[in-house]
Design a binder for these strands. Structure first.
Lengths: 357, 357
DNA sequence: GTGAAAGCGCTAACAC
DNA sequence: GTGTTAGCGCTTTCAC
């Protein structure tokens, strides 16, 4: 009893069909089969059909390994992402769409607790990707460059210094829009719950400072973290004080969610007692029962720009778009403030002791 | 000005170093280099070091494509996962650990809005994985088998009928433990907010029915969904009724979270007014400000079993562990009930109208 | 331990 | 349009 195969696909004893088998079955040459499967010019419509039908009949599937090996200069794009990061997953979706939409292939490599960025990059290098797009890379630029062993790198959501291309949201402007919005509502004291070491911290701090200075309102920055639990802890600490701000800008939606969760449980009403602004506009922010005002990143655009950058570096040097040499390494993508239910004008004489007098 | 390379890695004019280059640099044969990089027997410790040092010097990285192509029977394991599914990401982490920990390689393929399971599988097939592990596959078994084109399939968290191996948590038992726990606390009327089409629904329903029958308590099943928003909607509908149960078992943690969120905002206290049990024990359930009683899945064990199954099918037919032919297709992994703060004894004459009289 | 040689399945250049 | 051919970089066998 044969128990090794679990499919009904017609499978000759152990061996997978190759192009040669297809050629024999269709009565043509292997070169023709190759042309058909590459969608290259040089075969009539009728032959094409004849070949694909023969391939289907014997269950042929093109062998990507051989294909890759042969066209030594690969145009596949490697993508390094952090497992469990919702935002990375959104970007992944977009990258798949952009790259595969234009006929390219993507090779994934995850970063997790037991698998660092160097390991992830090494895997990608061993597949000889034409370029690698990194989502939220954390390692120092030099290490990344070294691990990439000459393969061009593009970083999303993590600005780089000089040797790696990057594309990132306009965090500075997002922060300015957030402050503008809160000031428009009448808030006079705004708190930015920042983070440390996270992507875009510097830009957001700068934007915050510029905006509060411009409006002449009181702005303070504290550490609020990037996860739900850090946000919740931050909110708990905040409630222990004598005075609580009327408006808080969280570093991201996850932290905002944690804050909201704890505040609600403590009886603080949002937005009656306090206004909250998130960052990222993650999928959860839009849910009707969360309804969080947030700065939306344009993930589609981020993906597009990153792929464009990657393809530019993959292209042979002769085709480099910028012959002047000194091309900009970074690009910034516009963001948008999505106003939802967690922000409103501060209530005159709100509800002490929650509200800053 | 040379602007094509973004690394300082020593890179001979355009060409990447190959094994031959390493052999020349180290003054040995290519066969020896191959032995060293495969960790195969046949080289002295001294030679090994000489070779690896030479490789480092010229920046050699093994070419996985060629390697794969050459050893035609690949033992790489393909993993198909849904993007944006937190639980899949946890499994992914474990799979990486288990597979790479034992010297194997994993190839990822994501399923998202614009990329269906057939496409994801096709990608894996074209890389000639030795086996594919699917996380939460949704397509009908026949379609999956057809798309796999003869490559053995293993499904995690989605029981299959007969042609595909699977491993799944013991959902039935998890449900029984949940009901037992609530009954122990004194609840006499329990509601199961089930889902439709989700993995393990049948098992959970069966477990629920068996448990309530055994305890002689009143158990009802309704649709509660699998996402936060569905959970919140469910809770809203629940509150509109005259009588509200004292204990609810959510289909998963995400739905439980949505329920809790809405209930808290409406002033219902957990667990004073109502007890909630989740399923999955996702990372968020353990956070102190959520503190959700939940049925924990053993992701490590799920990964291990799946890999074992995959490796068994990859092995040549002669080595099949079960020569009797009729081997069990599915395996079940024990779960554990993690009791946290969202469950407690019902208060005598709770707080109408929330509590079922 | 070494070197030579065959070949994995495909692509691409060439002559027909 | 078609067939022939030479590798891509590696693994693996074999005689030395």
């Amino acid at each position: 009893m044969e128990s090794s195969s679990s499919a009904r696909a017609p499978e000759p004893p152990g061996r997978r069909p190759t192009m040669r088998d297809v050629a024999r079955e269709a009565g043509v040459s292997t070169a023709l089969v190759s042309i058909v499967f590459r969608d290259a010019p040089g075969a009539s419509e009728r032959t094409r059909r004849r070949v694909t039908e023969a391939a289907d009949r014997i269950g042929y599937v093109v062998d990507e390994r051989a294909r890759l090996l042969r066209r030594s200069r690969s145009t596949d794009i490697g993508v390094m992402f952090q497992t469990g990061q919702p935002f990375h997953q959104q970007l992944l979706d977009q990258l798949y769409a952009v790259i595969e939409g234009s006929g390219g292939a993507v090779i994934l490599s995850g970063v997790s607790a037991g698998r660092d960025e160097r390991t992830a990059l090494a895997g990608l290098v061993s597949y000889r990707c034409g370029a690698v797009i990194m989502l939220g890379a954390g390692a120092p630029e030099d290490q990344l460059v070294a691990a990439a062993a000459g393969i061009p790198l593009v970083s999303i959501a993590r600005p780089m210094k000089e040797r790696v291309d990057w594309v990132s949201s306009d965090d500075r402007h997002g922060m300015i829009m957030s402050v503008d919005h809160l000031v428009d509502l009448g808030h006079e004291k705004v708190l930015f719950a920042a983070a440390e070491g996270a992507a875009g911290v510097a830009e957001r701090r700068a934007g915050f400072e510029a905006a509060v200075a411009q409006h002449g309102v009181e702005g303070t920055m504290e550490f609020g973290g990037v996860t739900e639990i850090e946000g919740a802890d931050f909110a708990a600490r905040m409630l222990e004080r004598d005075r609580v701000p009327t408006a808080v800008i969280a570093f991201n939606d996850r932290a905002a969610l944690g804050m909201m969760d704890l505040l609600v449980r403590r009886g603080v009403r949002i937005p009656e007692d306090i206004s909250i602004v998130g960052n990222d506009d993650s999928e959860i922010a839009g849910r009707h029962y969360v309804d969080l005002t947030s700065v939306a990143q344009d993930t589609r655009r981020l993906a597009e720009e990153a792929v464009a950058l990657a393809e530019r570096r993959m292209a042979p040097a002769s085709a480099q778009a910028d012959p002047d040499g000194q091309d900009p390494r970074g690009r910034t993508v516009p963001v948008e403030l999505i106003v939802r239910g967690t922000t409103a004008a501060p209530r005159a004489g709100g509800r002490p002791p929650w509200v800053l007098s």
